[in-house]
Amino acid sequence: MKAPPVSISCQDLTLRFPVYGVDAKSLKKHLAKITVGGKLARSHGATEVTALSNLNLELKAGDRLGLVGHNGSGKTTLLRALSGAYEPDEGTIEVQGHVAALLDLNLGIDPTATGFDNIRLRGRIAGLSSKEIDQRLPEIAEFSGLGAFLAMPVKTYSAGMQARLAFAAATAVEADVLLMDEWIAVGDADFQKIAHRRLLKLVERAGILVLASHDVELLRLYCNKVMRLEGGVASAVTPIKNLDELMAA
């Protein structure tokens, strides 16, 4: 049985964020709102931010899409929506293929657990079985370069060591669709070099890459297409050679 080809398809994707302020989360405020009715009515329901509006996107195997845009333009929101975490308010998202999102390296890292346990946990979350994790464990352990430290709790690690562990665990799972928020450069110079190679391999194996970045050079290096987001509104997807015009627009 042949799996359908890897693809991403977004149609008229609109995503709104309800903003629940810190104090709006309190039940008292909510009840107060009901009891005093009209007084606060204007604040009721007004706090909704449209993070993405009417976005259309079609990607197929081989596409390496760079996302550019200012802070808060919706890049991360789009990535989270593609990862399946955010549900669209309108429109559809359809993704064929196994998705891996490298948005937050510290996903599921438990500082009190040992390095080994954290690798296992991360692997389980990514959808590996215990057996598959055991098979990959030596490779991940070697790559992390942490040696005997893997048997110690992560909280005893230095920040750089923690980053190494997180990176090694997060990149151990190959995926058809790779979502990245900024190119992850971690650790000391040595590690950055091998981390870079590993990411490249991961990108090569993935059918589709979506990379959000502010680094123009980086985008030129890895992407063949680019899309600009501005206040939740997306430009058309254009070849990477038009990046300059796109940025200037």
Binding site: A81, P88, G91, T92, Q96, G97, H98, V99, G127
Partner: peptide, 11 residues
């Protein structure tokens, strides 16, 4: 590895 190989999210 057969998790989430097809995902459809709609409004």
């Amino acid at each position: 590895m057969d998790t989430a190989t097809h995902m459809l999210r709609t409004g």
